[in-house]
């Protein structure tokens, strides 16, 4: 297949180049653009290490062809830091609560948690666990990840009171689990 011209925004910067349409977004990010925050774990969309934010949605970037990301606004863990380069509240809480050990899943986990807290700024522990189930971690047993996210939610809410708390995760988790 011939290469196509792709243009997208990554962490606020416009980028463009030629790529085979079937190139996966994760490979484009890491290999063409040098954005190595998102990791390649399984390439079958189970592990979530490659999670990025694309146009306001959490996606596993191994499920996205770069052709599908045409014109998209992509944010990776690198783009979540504060404007002055310091760690965001969420990132800081992962550090504070030992929400990471080896760090392999961390970039995907934090990027997913970032979106999750937009979907549901005042989550319960059960909602965190349901909303984060697409990010596998082999080190922490998730306990401190959940703790970090709940702590971040609390701090972020103390900082600015959200006007609306409506969102998907806000509704009760209605699985048959």
């Amino acid at each position: 297949m011939s290469k196509m011209h792709v243009k997208l925004t990554v962490n606020g910067a416009a980028v463009e180049g030629l790529a085979e349409p079937r190139t996966l977004l994760i490979h484009c990010l890491r290999e063409n653009l040098g954005v190595t925050g998102p990791h390649v774990g399984c390439e079958t969309s189970h592990c979530g290490a490659c999670t990025v934010d694309m146009d306001g949605r959490s996606v596993k970037s191994c499920t996205v062809f770069v052709a599908q990301a045409q014109g998209a606004d992509v944010t990776t863990v690198e783009g979540l830091v504060n404007a002055d380069g310091s760690l965001s509240v969420l990132q800081e809480m992962f550090r504070e609560h030992y929400g990471l050990q080896c760090g392999f899943c961390t970039s995907g986990t934090i990027t997913r948690a970032h979106r999750f807290l937009q979907e549901n700024p005042i989550p319960t522990e059960e909602q965190v666990r349901f909303g984060m189930a697409g990010n596998l971690c082999r080190c922490t047993g998730y306990q401190n990840i959940v703790k970090a996210i709940l702590a971040a939610a609390e701090m972020m809410n103390a900082q600015d009171k959200p006007s609306s708390t409506e969102g998907v995760g806000q509704q009760k988790v209605e699985t048959a689990e």
Binding site: C42, T44, H46, C47, V128, R129, F130, M132, A133, G134, N135, L136, R138, G141, Y142, Q143, I145, V146, E177
Partner: peptide
């Protein structure tokens, strides 16, 4: 795959 090789997720993993 990680579907058939069981790796627990946040959901179902105990709180210790």
């Amino acid at each position: 795959t990680l579907m058939d090789f069981f790796l627990p997720t946040t959901w179902g993993t105990p709180t210790y």
